[in-house]
């Protein structure tokens, strides 16, 4: 079948990759930060604890259960 250049395909932009070299520093920085946040919502003062007491655990307790993280 012949390939036709319709007005539709003319207006369709072609995605250009973002170089990995440019991505990597941001990826490391943001991944560490995001995983730390998820740790506090999902695991702090459950199996592991960075801050003493149980306040963090009790405060985000409903979210931890409802988001599917193990608890109790």
């Amino acid at each position: 079948m012949a390939q036709t250049a319709s007005p539709q395909s003319h207006s369709q932009p072609i995605p250009v990759r973002i170089p990995v070299r440019q991505l990597l520093p941001w990826a490391i920085f943001a991944a560490v930060l995001a995983l730390l946040l998820i740790y506090f919502v999902g695991a702090e003062q459950g199996a592991t604890s960075l801050i003493g007491g149980h306040y963090v655990h009790e405060f985000v307790h409903d979210g931890r259960h409802l988001l599917g993280f193990p608890c109790h």
């Binding site: 946040l37 998820i38 506090f40 919502v41 999902g42 009790e58 405060f59 985000v60 307790h61 409903d62 979210g63 931890r64 409802l66 988001l67």
Partner: peptide, 9 residues
């Protein structure tokens, strides 16, 4: 508590 947990997540 719930809003904070889900918001941070």
């Amino acid at each position: 508590g719930l809003a904070t947990g889900i918001g941070l997540y």
